[in-house]
Design a protein around this nucleic acid. Sequence first.
DNA 1: TTGTAAGCGTTATCAG
DNA 2: CTGATAACGCTTACAA
Lengths: 356, 356
Amino acid sequence: MDRDGAAEQSGTAGAAEPRTRRNRPTGGGVTMEAVGRLAGVSQVTVSRALNDPSKVSAETLRRIEEAIATTGYVPNAVAGALASSRSRLVTALVPSITNVVYSSLVKSFIEGMRAQGYQILLSETGFDPVEEEALIAAHLSRRPDAILLTGIHHTAKARHQLLGAGIPVVEVWDITDTPIDMCVGFSHSEAGRRVADFAVESGYSVAATVTAADERARRRARAFTEQFEARAGRTVTTVELPGPASLAEGRRALATLIESGDFTTGAVFCSSDLLAHGALIELHVRGIAVPGQVAVIGFGDQDFAPYTEPALTTVSVDRTELGRRAASALIARLAGEPRKDAVINLGYQIVRRGSA
Amino acid sequence: MDRDGAAEQSGTAGAAEPRTRRNRPTGGGVTMEAVGRLAGVSQVTVSRALNDPSKVSAETLRRIEEAIATTGYVPNAVAGALASSRSRLVTALVPSITNVVYSSLVKSFIEGMRAQGYQILLSETGFDPVEEEALIAAHLSRRPDAILLTGIHHTAKARHQLLGAGIPVVEVWDITDTPIDMCVGFSHSEAGRRVADFAVESGYSVAATVTAADERARRRARAFTEQFEARAGRTVTTVELPGPASLAEGRRALATLIESGDFTTGAVFCSSDLLAHGALIELHVRGIAVPGQVAVIGFGDQDFAPYTEPALTTVSVDRTELGRRAASALIARLAGEPRKDAVINLGYQIVRRGSA
DNA sequence: TTGTAAGCGTTATCAG
DNA sequence: CTGATAACGCTTACAA
């Protein structure tokens, strides 16, 4: 079979058609038109064959499929989106793509959306609302069918543009009574408070927090501190890191805490498991018994948490479920279903292991 | 100022224009047309104001900017891409987005591309070439200006479609003399061999490998094994995991190795730092001296590697630089520069710390 | 079952 | 400096 069927057909087409604006530069794209010509049908029929094969006769379908195979045709989703005003594209904004907490959430979100034929355009805001605003505009320019945002705090302009876009929006990893559209997450302040309860009830009368530069983490730490101070009547020592969480920062924070002399025994609530793991290592190196002298509580329940030494007591949030629920919330809206549960609280769970 | 300027203008426009096909459904999108009407200029002038302000008078520009602000206009990149056949979109495919090794690489790639105005459509292949093939087709349908792939092994159909797309392609995290287009990475087999040299020269005469389900990791392990056996004259014990690397799997693998009795002393080469860290923990729990009785070597030099106990000896690959170079390679091509270095070998570095 | 025609919101070309 | 006008490659009526 002739590899270059299109060229052959152009002869068939006959008389000199007026040449179009662009001199068909690189072979950049086979069109439905070309596929149709090769299959002996019109362009629309090819469109139908692709979008709803039941509307095309078996024989025609076969010829079209053959033509697609020989031309190596790849549908142009850009043109499709413009014509139908449905892009089958969904946008997602997360604070960090290298942080498993977010990437695992996004992973299950992507899987959920992909199962329905949606592709995901992902960007990272770096925890910065201004950056987020710029990215929202950039994403909106691609005319996504829906959008996922992390957190509930966005600039006024961002909210305005989101509302103006008229598409379903889901905010995740936090919770509010007044979402832009929909929301699936949990309460960070409540989680912080409950960890304080847990610490108090576990018998710790002294506490410290180690918190990365993340508004939600700070909110947890603040709630923890208030509750712990209220119940234990002791001031909580606070360490706020200037940057993101890491094992190294966890070690350093514990070293600081211990060496300062302010904190020699008690419970440390870290804003992430990574920090907590670092804390564990530093304590081990210094020969400080865990949880005997110092207890450590993490946040996130990352997959390594059960395997640290001792195993990490932490707060578990089902990120996979969260991503899944975010996806199905959007999918329901995209399918035209009326919005039912605008706010879904997935909660969290304090998992007691060896470290506290 | 009237919020709904467009409506006001439609009165100005005068007589009944023939209504278009769609009844302007949701206010889904302000157009350049609408902005132009409000600013008292034509649609093309708005386009110019946005793409090349120097071609528009200062006064006109001001009025257009005002109109954009009051209408909340967001450019339609879909229409723009169709008209210009440049999408300003670049596609990236990685095996896993939750694995820092890849996400950190992608992060710096994204930053590099974004600086030039490109957005990145990211998907995860799950280490599966068939899945990758499907994703390549899906991505190509968005008509990206360029594409980044992880690794050098792709299905024949994928290669064919990539070639047909006629866009710059960069393959990363591996190396070959025959890239689809360009390639930036390092040699996995060479790295494996050099780790074997390192182990032999460090005095270990017994070795084992623990390897996750990743073709490149296996290639490193195989090269390590061959070289070690050749130089030390001893068979290398091999543990191949069925799934991805994790701290848990690292612990388990070491437990298996030790309990089998085949391996009581020597060096263990793990296919990732995560596995190595798990190994360290398991050895610690069992009271086995590191590196005295068992030495551990990781791969990747993740940020936690210097902070494990003992600090992890591992193979460092500059992923940030890799992502950056991949971006600049594409950007150069997109700017029309001729391809210079089609293959860039960034190498790797064996970092000796405490564990081996 | 298939085809024709119009239009999606831009950019590129060509005039003025 | 500004404006018509023709594409870009599809999808959606509407007709045959």
